[in-house]
């Protein structure tokens, strides 16, 4: 077995073993391992950061959603208020206008009635005057003497009053 027979090569094997192993250890410690550990640390930071940011964005989205829902609810309530207010206002305005119209119509009707009444009285007075004059004229023709105007009027009034 060469492993036990070639005793002369033992020193060479040991020397080259310690040489190569030593160099490898230094290269690993100084260069390769720090580089890999840096890569891994950077990635871990990045992953942690990404997850944290995703969490933040999620919370933000949730708060935005909540704010939106609150705003929507508020807007809905406001719209209903406005709707109710304006309906009430419209109803009040309509009632007021209705009332004013009614009042005006009533006033106008009353004024019309008064006017008609006055006109009738005037007409009646006029009729009496005309009748008195006609009666005076008729008496003049029949008697041939000028009649007293006041006695004619009294006679007419007596007739109208007896009838009326």
């Amino acid at each position: 077995m060469p492993q036990l027979e070639q005793v002369g090569t033992f020193l060479s094997q040991l020397v080259w073993l310690f040489l190569t192993f030593g160099i490898l250890y230094i290269v690993m410690k100084r260069s390769a391992l720090p580089r890999i550990s840096q890569i891994l640390a950077t990635r871990q930071e990045r992953i942690d950061g990404d997850l944290r940011r995703a969490d933040e964005i999620k919370t933000e989205a949730e708060s935005v959603l909540a704010a939106y829902e609150a705003a929507a609810a508020r807007a809905r309530a406001e719209a209903q208020d406005i709707l109710r207010d304006s309906a009430e206002r419209f109803a009040a305005e309509a009632a007021e206008k209705n009332e004013a119209l009614g009042r005006r119509l009533a006033e106008e009707a009353a004024a019309g009635e008064a006017r008609i009444g006055a006109a009738r009285e005037q007409a009646m007075a006029d009729v009496e005057a005309i009748a008195a004059e006609l009666a005076g004229l008729a008496a003049e023709r029949l008697t041939g003497a000028p009649t007293d105007r006041s006695s004619a009027e009294a006679a007419v009034a007596q007739v109208v009053g007896g009838r009326g």
């Binding site: 090569t9 060479s12 080259w16 073993l17 190569t20 290269v27």
Partner: peptide, 20 residues
């Protein structure tokens, strides 16, 4: 002392370079 470069040494150096 005999510290000759042998086939064993060669493989050690190849391992060193390969790992690096």
């Amino acid at each position: 002392a005999d510290i000759s470069f042998t086939n064993s040494s060669l493989m050690m150096v190849i391992a060193l370079i390969g790992i690096t």
